[in-house]
């Protein structure tokens, strides 16, 4: 477990988590704490329940159940004793704590004029552990270089949740800003100025404005800034050569990305999607994809503990998606042929 993490929990929860078997502790991805319900962890792509002694069990009836006091204390630690100071985060349903760990919250929504104002009676926590996997970009970076322009292509990283998008993005940022291109033609390029718009404070995990993850020497971070506005602020004032953003998907994100593209800035972005076909099915992403805004797609997938990256160039992506959708939605020409003599 990372050093800051145990501080979040009170005894006996803390002791239980510290006694986890080492193979689970080293690959820990999630800790799920639900009031008066079994304690669960996710590790190495699997999940398991945790009993009184920190041992893993498949039987949820044997698992430890965190009580009300433990949950209350956890909530206080997560919010630094100040629920009033994280109202905005509660509205979005998660809080990011020191070390970049994101804590998803489940509770009762309080509505104000029909929209979610914040959460109360919070009784479910999903602690997602942030990890820096230094070096995971080395496999991807050569595939997304734009050798003519001497920088990276506009790249969209796609995968379902929890497969390592943010981890990859973080390491790409580090590699680009420190000049670890891992390509023979790029040895003399040096690092590029990278701007990170870190809306969820997950990429850089800033504490008082300073990134706690290594993002290389030439990196600026706009912490907790909405993506669309942040991208514009970045371009206007911090002259980045590459802008990195996490989880795009809203219409205003697309507009801001378009602006950045035309300002001569390269963009690295991530999005939730299981496959390329999904990218072309989501309205905002589809618009960007069909305009051939992105030069390359990286599809992250995981089986067991192994993370795999597939890099697809934009033209191939369009072709691949069209080829797949052909049998289902036949083009008029194809239909005519089928009806012919």
């Amino acid at each position: 477990m990372s050093p800051a993490l145990p501080d979040l929990f009170v005894q006996p929860l803390r002791g239980i988590l510290e006694r986890l078997p080492s193979h689970a502790a080293d690959t820990l991805e999630e800790i799920r704490i639900r009031e008066n319900r079994p304690l669960e962890i996710g590790y190495a792509g699997r999940h398991g329940f945790v009993d009184q002694d920190g041992a893993l069990t498949a039987d949820y009836r044997k698992a430890y159940m965190p009580g009300r006091e433990e949950c209350r204390a956890l909530l206080e630690r997560v919010t630094n004793h100040s629920l009033y100071a994280v109202e905005e985060e509660l509205r979005r349903g998660y809080v990011t704590v020191a070390g970049g760990h994101r804590i998803g919250l489940a509770g009762r929504a309080v509505l104000e004029r029909g929209a979610v104002a914040h959460l109360k009676d919070i009784a479910g926590f999903n602690v997602r552990i942030a990890r820096a996997r230094s070096g995971c970009a080395a496999a991807v970076l050569p595939g997304i270089l734009d050798l003519k322009a001497g920088t990276v292509k506009h790249t969209l990283i796609v995968s379902p949740p929890q497969q390592g998008k943010t981890t990859l993005l973080r390491d790409l940022v580090r590699s680009i800003s420190s000049g670890d291109w891992n390509h023979p033609a790029a040895i003399r390029w040096g690092g590029r100025k990278v701007g990170v718009v870190d809306e969820r404070s997950e990429i850089a995990a800033c504490e008082a404005g300073v990134p706690t993850f290594d993002l290389g020497p030439r990196c600026d971070v706009l912490d907790a800034c909405p993506k669309a506005e942040g991208i514009m602020m970045m371009v206007r004032s911090l002259s980045p050569e590459v802008v990195a953003v996490d989880e795009i998907g809203r219409p205003e994100d697309a507009d801001a990305l378009n602006e950045a593209l035309h300002a001569g800035v390269r963009v690295l972005a991530t999005a939730h999607a299981t496959s390329l076909a999904d990218v072309f099915a989501r309205p905002v992403l589809a618009r960007l994809a069909e305009d051939c805004v992105f030069g390359a797609y990286v599809i992250v997938s995981r089986s067991g503990g192994q993370v795999r990256y597939r890099i697809v160039a934009a033209e191939d992506a369009v072709r691949e998606v069209k080829a797949r959708s052909m049998p289902a939605i036949r083009s008029p020409a194809a239909q005519l042929e089928a009806q012919g003599p």
């Binding site: 206080e76 919010t79 004793h81 629920l83 009033y84 109202e87 309080v110 104002a117 914040h118 109360k120």
Partner: peptide, 9 residues
């Protein structure tokens, strides 16, 4: 203290 939203506090 600290256990609710701003208005309530």
């Amino acid at each position: 203290l600290g256990g609710s939203g701003r208005e309530d506090q």
